[in-house]
């Protein structure tokens, strides 16, 4: 016959294990909830061949969410995502941009003119991929005067 103290001790081990199990489960659940893969569009968005952007034009590439402009020095891509709450801005006839959600206005180089937007629209790095097509990197902002030479 086991003594009451011993029984008591075993019971405590059991309940302690239940507590540990609770912590383990919570931690595992949190880890389970974040799978380290993404099926969304990659942050590097294809823009197509350079010839798609005639000199002096501003082209909206919807799949990439950027405005691509080309001048004699090369190509640059400006994010079309409003810095306020992430809506996609629209180009205006005067060359500026306006956000349809809360009316933020930007000039043609992305500087905030009015509205709640806290920061100018960033310019993004443009590179060529192996096949010679251009791609914009949504995670890499570059200075407004940096252009990618496309010849």
């Amino acid at each position: 016959m086991t003594s009451p103290e011993r029984r008591n001790f075993i019971w405590q081990i059991g309940t302690a294990a239940v507590a540990v199990l609770g912590v383990q489960s919570a931690w595992s659940t949190l880890r389970y909830a974040r799978a380290p893969v993404s099926y969304g569009p990659t942050r590097r968005r294809p823009l197509g061949q350079a010839s798609r952007f005639p000199r002096g034009s501003v082209v909206f590439v919807a799949d990439a969410g950027v405005f691509v402009s080309r001048d004699s020095a090369g190509i640059r891509a400006m994010s079309a995502t409003c810095t306020h709450l992430g809506c996609t801005v629209r180009a205006q006839a005067d060359g500026g941009f306006v956000c349809p959600c809360h009316g933020s206005r930007y000039d043609k180089s992305g500087v905030v003119l009015s509205g709640p937007a806290p920061a100018p629209l960033p310019f993004l790095r443009v590179q060529r991929d192996r096949g010679g097509r251009l791609q914009a990197d949504l995670d890499v902002p570059v200075p407004a005067d940096q252009r990618t030479d496309v010849g």
């Binding site: 075993i10 294990a17 540990v20 595992s28």
Partner: peptide
């Protein structure tokens, strides 16, 4: 006592498995 043993045993086993 055997029930206590089983209880503690199963819970410890679960902790070990997790």
């Amino acid at each position: 006592a055997w029930l206590h043993w089983l209880f503690a045993g199963s819970m410890v086993a679960l902790v070990a498995l997790v």
